[in-house]
Amino acid sequence: MEPPLIAVLNGPNLNMLGTREPEKYGTATLDDVEALCAEAAEELGLAIDFRQTNLEGELISWVQECRGSAAGIIINPAGYSHTSIALMDALLAVDLPVVEVHITNIHRREPFRHHSYVSRAAVGVICGLGVGGYALALRAIAGIIGQDDTP
């Protein structure tokens, strides 16, 4: 039996991790994040489809593709968190568990970042814990879909 597939989707500017404002986002690259997710997924008996785009429409299409193929979605929508009702609508439409991840604590940043449309579609939000938040999100999704027996 194949392990459940979790889509790990990343929005704009995350391709610049490691060089973009390292004082806020750290020095880990997106490749480092993908490796961290692959390791965590393997430990949890999950498969991942890890992607990043700077294009809102592409991100929405990827979310829509998850219906019928993925057991859940982990998403770092980045700047689209605060602007994209269309992304929120797509996440609600696929009817899958969603965990929203932010590397920084969006509530300690500029006021416009305090609200996330994506949170309306998420069963949980992990923010401010650096790239390690992705591994926590995978553990959360594993528990939600019944893949993790750990209390």
Rank of each mutant, 00 (worst) to 15 (best):
T53P: 12
T53H: 06
N54S: 13
L55Q: 14
L55K: 13
L55C: 12
E56V: 11
E58G: 11
L59I: 00
L59W: 00
L59F: 00
L59P: 00
I60R: 05
S61T: 01
S61Y: 00
W62T: 04
V63G: 14
V63I: 05
V63R: 14
Q64W: 02
E65H: 13
C66T: 07
C66R: 15
R67A: 14
R67P: 05
R67F: 08
G68R: 02
S69P: 06
S69V: 10
A70E: 05
A70N: 06
A70C: 15
A71E: 13
A71F: 10
I73F: 08
I73R: 11
I74S: 01
I74V: 09
I75S: 01
N76Q: 09
N76F: 11
N76P: 12
N76S: 06
N76M: 08
P77F: 01
P77A: 15
G79P: 10
Y80D: 05
Y80G: 07
S81R: 00
S81C: 04
H82E: 11
H82F: 04
H82N: 15
H82M: 10
T83Q: 11
T83Y: 02
T83N: 13
T83G: 15
T83P: 12
S84W: 08
I85R: 14
I85P: 08
A86C: 02
L87S: 08
L87Q: 09
L87R: 11
L87F: 10
M88T: 15
M88N: 15
M88G: 13
L91H: 01
L91A: 03
L92M: 02
L92R: 02
L92N: 07
A93T: 01
V94N: 05
V94Y: 00
V94K: 03
D95Y: 11
D95H: 14
L96Y: 04
L96F: 03
P97V: 04
P97S: 06
P97Q: 06
P97R: 05
P97M: 07
P97L: 06
V98Y: 04
V98G: 08
V99R: 04
V99S: 07
E100A: 06
V101A: 08
V101T: 14
I103Q: 11
T104R: 01
N105P: 03
N105K: 08
N105Q: 09
N105H: 07
N105M: 11
